[in-house]
Simulated scan of single mutants.
Amino acid sequence: MSTVSLYLIRHGETEQNKTGVLVGSTDTSLNDHGRRQALSLRERINALQVDAVYSSPLVRAVETATLVFGDNAPIITDSSLQEFHFGEWEGMHFSEIARQYPEIWQTWLTDWEKTRIPGSENFFAFTHRVVSSVEEIVRSQPGRRVAVVSHGGCIRSLLAHFFCESVGKGYWRFKVDNATLSEVEFMGELPILVRFNYR
């Protein structure tokens, strides 16, 4: 039975991550600390022999992938690996959202999975595109070691899908920090969590 090693890496810190501003689909770069985080992760995992690197096309993810795996690493970008699109909440601080959208904010806090943020992506469509894309990557790479550089929401969705009853019930059970690696090994179709939030 061939195994597949899947390395899920969240991008390094951005200024928006640092200050509590939502930037799901907004394209932002790493800050200096985020670049140092990515380089530190590179030093920690330089023993990994990765056969393929996939990345969200957003700058913060591609920059992280390049810093971790080197300038010459062939990086395959895939828009299915992008973060959730927050619609009208993009670029807003949490306190600003609570002030401008008090009713939707309170509903989101209690039933976030079904609450539709104005202009946002449907949560179920988001998790479906992320999970479907990564499952196809795993199927297409038998016996190989594959890295996916993406975003916090994407990695939480994947881990919840693989290891919880449902994505909705497991989504917030995983704290995925910037520039961390979570490793999943597939024995056939059986996912095994090898490392989580490693830095």
Rank of each mutant, 00 (worst) to 15 (best):
S133L: 06
M92V: 01
T127E: 15
V138Y: 10
D111P: 05
F123V: 12
A98G: 06
F86D: 00
W105M: 12
L109H: 12
H85T: 02
T110F: 07
A125Q: 15
R99D: 13
P118R: 05
T115E: 06
R139F: 05
N122F: 09
G91Y: 11
W108A: 04
Q106D: 13
S80I: 05
H85V: 00
E135G: 07
V138R: 13
F94R: 10
F84A: 00
S80V: 06
H128C: 08
V130H: 08
K114R: 14
E135D: 13
P118M: 00
H128K: 15
E83T: 00
E96V: 04
H85Y: 13
L109D: 09
F86E: 01
I137D: 08
H93K: 12
F94E: 08
A98E: 14
T110C: 10
L81P: 12
T107H: 14
Q100I: 07
E96Y: 04
Q82Y: 12
R129S: 06
I137L: 08
T110G: 08
I117E: 09
F94A: 08
K114P: 01
F84G: 00
H93L: 07
Y101P: 04
V130K: 03
W108P: 03
W89A: 00
V138K: 11
E90N: 05
F86S: 00
I97E: 10
E96M: 02
R129V: 01
T110A: 13
E136H: 12
F124I: 12
E103A: 13
N122I: 14
T115F: 05
R129W: 07
T110H: 14
T115D: 09
E96H: 07
E135W: 03
W108F: 15
K114H: 15
E90Q: 06
